[in-house]
């Protein structure tokens, strides 16, 4: 009996192998643009579909985690089938750029955004912006912090959440090292840890934890408020707050894109970047995803100040490509 079953299963498997090889061969040859996207499908696909509808260009998108995709691109090197890399953060783009895998972009594309939101090597460009904020419970937090230094005060003891392994938190620490020096950053982290800070894996977990009453305040990106609320299907008891002007806690990070040197489809790739940076698509980003437009300076997501109004510090985004110094610091403190 068992043998019959094994034979049956082997036959079924062999058939599926044959079928898959056939379909595999059929889909081998295609003239479409290959995109590696670290931005989620539900976020970016609507815009990519619009682009296809508009231009007729066929897009093949591989979705993944930005960092994993960057590692994959580094591993593929000159053999990469990718034309465009769309990344969730500047760090992953910087790593690819540093390895010399990105092609230079035309000035007209670069000029759509301020120079602080694009590569210093002119090979990638920011598309949307995200502000670091503190998310908090308006009900339980009566005294809002005006500086990250206040987070180490006893009144916030065991009430703050951070996501130290998350790249957006590490970007913030990198900015902190840049503005205050390594010793001061180390000191701040140690005091924060001594204040019994709670650790999470993701920003969304922090916002959910504030809503659930586990903690009162957390360091996250601004749009998680909407994301978590949408996921839970209800209003949540969490608000976004900014620190005083110039505080590193208000830094702006970007999501962006670059074209791979291996691209065999440069024209369409450039066209896609132009499209993503066009006024109407930028406006849609704000309305549909609550992210900041980098091209439209005075438009802002509902309930938030305009990008130009955010009291953010100046941060060199190219430094975010290598967070090893930052990680070493976090390791030293024992947060990761």
């Amino acid at each position: 009996m068992a043998l019959k079953r094994l034979r049956f299963i082997t036959l079924a498997l062999a058939l599926s192998l044959g079928a898959s090889l056939l379909t595999g061969c059929a889909s081998q040859k295609s003239e479409s643009l290959v995109i590696y996207s670290g931005r989620s499908e539900s976020f970016i696909s609507q815009f990519l579909n619009q682009f296809t509808a508009l231009t007729g260009a066929k897009l093949d998108v591989r979705y993944g985690d930005s960092a994993a995709l960057a590692a994959q691109l580094l591993e593929e090197g000159v053999n990469s089938p990718a034309d465009i890399f769309i990344s969730q953060d500047a760090g992953a783009l910087g790593a690819i750029s540093e390895a010399g895998l990105l092609a230079p972009l035309e000035q007209r594309i670069l000029d759509r955004v301020e120079d602080k939101y694009r590569s210093s090597r002119s090979d990638w460009v920011g598309i949307t912006g995200r502000a670091r904020v503190f998310a908090y419970s308006p009900e339980r937090v009566k005294t809002l912090p005006f500086s990250i230094d206040q987070l180490t005060l006893p009144i916030y003891r065991a009430k703050i959440g951070i996501a130290p392994t998350n790249s957006s938190f590490q970007a913030f620490i990198t900015a902190l090292i840049q503005s205050r020096g390594e010793a001061a950053a180390l000191n701040w982290l140690e005091r924060l840890k001594a204040n019994d800070v709670k650790l999470y894996e993701k920003n969304s977990q922090i916002v959910a934890a504030i809503d659930a009453g586990e903690i009162d305040l957390g360091l996250v990106n601004h749009y998680y408020l909407w994301e978590v609320s949408k996921a839970l299907g209800r209003e949540i008891a969490v608000a976004n707050g900014f620190f005083a002007p110039g505080d590193t806690g208000n830094m702006i990070n970007v999501a962006g894109a670059g074209i791979l040197k291996t691209s065999t489809n440069l024209d369409v790739s450039l066209e896609l970047l132009t499209y993503l940076l066009s006024d109407e698509v930028q406006r849609e980003f704000i309305e549909k995803t609550y992210e900041y437009s980098l091209a439209l300076k005075d438009a802002n997501p509902v309930g938030l100040p305009a990008l130009s109004q955010i009291p953010s510090p100046r941060v060199d985004l190219s430094l975010l490509a290598n967070l090893s110094k930052t990680q070493a610091l976090l390791i030293k403190v024992g947060l990761i």
Binding site: G24, S27, V34, S40, E41, S42, F43, D60, V61, R62, Y63, G64, D65, A68, Q72, K202, S204, A208, E227, V228, K230, A231, G233
Partner: peptide, 29 residues
């Protein structure tokens, strides 16, 4: 999941990758 995301044919979605694409943006529902 992780190896699938890197190696799957483009447009080939498995239950795990679909699950990931929702859960990574917190849409567990």
């Amino acid at each position: 999941l992780p190896a699938t995301l890197m190696l799957k044919p483009i447009g080939f979605e498995t239950l795990a990758t679909q699950m990931w694409s929702y859960s990574s943006i917190f849409r567990f529902n």
